[in-house]
Design a binder for these strands. Structure first.
Lengths: 222, 222
DNA sequence: AGTGGTCTGATTGTAAACAATTTAGCTGAA
DNA sequence: TTCAGCTAAATTGTTTACAATCAGACCACT
């Protein structure tokens, strides 16, 4: 028989580990890197993703690249055309976004409920560190980083939940809300308001009141 | 530049095409076959899935098998342990199922709304053919086939929707509801009731009334 | 000039060989 | 007996090479 070392992987998905990180899993790193670049718009919609180009860029062979692209395709980040390669998929339609937003709110509320009683000081500090980075991104109007940090914040909530598979569902949903993370920031609102929204969320978490915390979290996703 | 032939694949997912089918896509066929065998319980929970064994069984090399297993892992059907292989993942917890069921209801209702006005005779006939197979499965108490046909029925609704990505979301959800499709049939209810529930759904579709159709569909998922 | 066929370049899909990692069983000494 | 360390088998992860497929250009033919 076979029994591995420890982790029950399938969905670590640290999402955005810069290439300076050491190397827990080569392939997952590639997936997270590419996903973040697509979500934040650093890789534009419709742009083709060639296996050989990516293989050269990440200094690996085509096989890990193929698996990474496959996963991103299943998440809805890229479209695959048989025998013809992948390209960054277009954003979801308006009606799809209207479907997905409440789904996402349901999932994140569920995750928060499942962890709320066990939150510790280190959890709050982790979020507050993200907030500090978010503040800088807002002040410098670095919208790509802001989107990245916003996603990182919400993902860290999901990742704390002990429920298996929640992360996978969440990513499948959020990957189809790219426009929210780009247009949502650039256009109308003062980016600082995004920052303060998240400050309010963490502060409410610290208060220990569940229902208002869920409300704060949900209202941030509209 | 590259532009493929026609299909914008990424999610055909015929789901259960017996090995007699010709061969539009080798890999997708393997994925669908394995997924169905897991959902219907033909491959038991916790059973390891060895790449070489599957490669021999499907008469292909390890590469397509790896990609298939990767996809199933992302859907939550199998668990991956680094350097140690895949095994069929355990069913979701009760609380996860309570989360997923309403999500699934929302997704299927959305799909039905998006296609309801354009339903044609051929659509009804397709569903009624599934019903006829379902009737046989109920009469012979073939619970695995019944589960398979139940899934096939609902999936065909999703597949008719023009919305891109809906199928991917749906599969991510339904893959985690395996127990519903096994325990749900074997234990309490007379299997024939499952059949009549679906008859009622199709009949309501034919009536052209949207809201009652949604109601019928949703009530089938509890 | 327009139409059809063919050839070429590029890209993905598959297969087979190789490297790295882990588990399990065995050996041997305290 | 029990436990540490070692060896070997099994399995996955990666690289490389090869086959299949498709888009586009080129050229003959009408």
């Amino acid at each position: 028989m076979c029994s591995p070392h420890q982790k029950t992987t399938t969905e670590k998905s640290e999402l955005f580990m810069s290439q300076t990180e050491f190397a827990p899993d080569q392939r997952q790193q590639i997936v997270d890197q590419l996903r973040m670049e697509i979500i934040t718009g650093r890789i534009a919609e419709g742009m083709p993703l060639r296996e050989v180009s990516l293989a050269e860029r990440f200094q690996v062979s085509r096989a890990p690249i193929r698996e990474a692209l496959k996963q991103l395709a299943h998440e809805g980040m890229v479209e695959s055309k048989p025998n013809c390669g992948m390209r960054v998929a277009p954003s979801s339609s308006d009606s799809m976004q209207e479907l997905i937003i409440p789904l996402r709110q349901t999932v994140e509320s569920f995750a928060l409920k499942s962890i709320f009683a066990d939150l510790s000081e280190s959890d709050f500090e982790e979020w507050e560190f993200i907030l500090s980075e978010m503040k800088i991104a807002c002040e410098t109007k670095d919208y790509a980083s802001l989107a990245e940090l916003d996603i990182k914040f919400h993902q860290s909530i999901i990742s704390k939940s002990p429920e298996q598979g929640l992360m996978s569902i969440w990513i499948t949903l959020v990957s189809r809300l790219r426009r929210h993370f780009l247009e949502g920031f650039q256009k109308p609102r003062d980016p600082m308001k995004v920052y303060y929204e998240h400050v309010a969320i963490v502060a409410m978490f610290r208060s220990g009141k569940l229902e208002p915390s869920i409300q704060a979290l949900v209202s941030n996703m509209d």
